[in-house]
């Protein structure tokens, strides 16, 4: 029956099917490749000169962690729109009438969408290097940084999967996604330093998982000095652990919610 192994096998079949679409419609990749380039260039050239960091370090270098974090969150839009489109097609009825794992349709989707984020991280990293961003720490730490971005983005894509299943049509996906992603990234330290927030906002920013992800990426890329951290919040002092806790929590909450919604949406 629905053993975990069966679920994994079915998920692999679905993931393979999703990747074939990318192969047949390569235009899909244009957004994946162009938007990270655009984000890096816009943020580094528009804000790069306008914002000064107190400690005299390079804003451009500071920025990259934030741009990485934001871009992988945007990658979740593919998950939401992919599922929303699937739900409108007769194919979903066929899937639901097959003796396959229901969760596999969703797991396969989130899994295949990781490939978009891998691609966009590569493109962003290269663009970053071109405009002067450098990894200051060890290569191993840098790889850990990329891995952390990927696993958090994977967990986040489960929120997006849920949104994709909730919306009545694929056209609504983009707007609903922005409503989630924009506050999350702008109420964080992704683009402006923590110090520029105060009061309640400061607490929100400190405990926002996107701040922790950004902080963790910066530390692992050696783009910030952890000892210069202007916060005593646990989430900021242990950004990697805090990000991983959120990663696990998002999957634990949104995977079952999405599967339930998938069953209900067409029932």
């Amino acid at each position: 029956m629905n053993t975990p192994i069966r679920t994994l096998k079915d998920s692999a079949v679905i993931a393979e099917r999703n990747l074939v679409k990318v192969k047949r419609v390569p235009v899909l990749l244009v957004y994946v490749l162009l938007s990270p380039i655009m984000f890096v260039l816009l943020f580094s050239f528009v804000f790069g000169g306008a914002i000064e960091l107190g400690d005299g370090s390079s804003y451009r270098e500071f920025l990259m962690g934030g741009v990485f974090a934001m871009t992988v969150l945007f990658g979740g839009i593919f998950t939401a729109s992919g599922l929303a489109e699937d739900m409108q097609k007769g194919l979903i009825d066929r899937f639901r009438s097959l003796p396959m794992s229901h969760a596999a349709v969703l797991i396969g989707r989130t899994a295949s969408d990781v490939s978009y984020n891998i691609l966009s991280l590569i493109v962003m990293g290269l663009t970053g290097l071109l405009v002067g961003w450098r990894v200051q720490g060890s290569l191993l730490d840098a790889l850990a940084g990329f891995a952390l971005l990927l696993v958090f983005a994977y967990a986040f894509s489960w929120i997006m999967a849920y949104i994709g299943l909730l919306v009545p049509s694929p056209e609504v996906v983009n707007n609903s996604s922005y409503l989630v992603i924009m506050p999350l990234t702008f109420l964080s330290n992704a683009f402006v330093p923590l110090e520029s927030f105060s009061g309640l906002l400061r607490h929100i920013v400190e405990w926002n998982p996107v701040s922790a992800l950004t902080q963790a990426a910066r530390e692992l890329f050696g783009n910030t000095d952890p000892s210069a951290l202007a916060s005593t919040a646990w989430s900021m002092e242990h950004p990697v652990a805090y990000t991983l806790i959120w990663t696990a929590a998002l999957v634990v909450v949104f995977l079952p919610l999405s599967v339930r919604q998938y069953r209900r949406a067409t029932g």
């Binding site: 679409k21 047949r24 097609k89 007769g90 194919l91 009825d93 066929r94």
Partner: peptide, 11 residues
């Protein structure tokens, strides 16, 4: 099951 909307993946 075969429905009225050919339920196959178009790609």
């Amino acid at each position: 099951l075969s429905g009225q909307y050919a339920a196959v993946d178009e790609y």
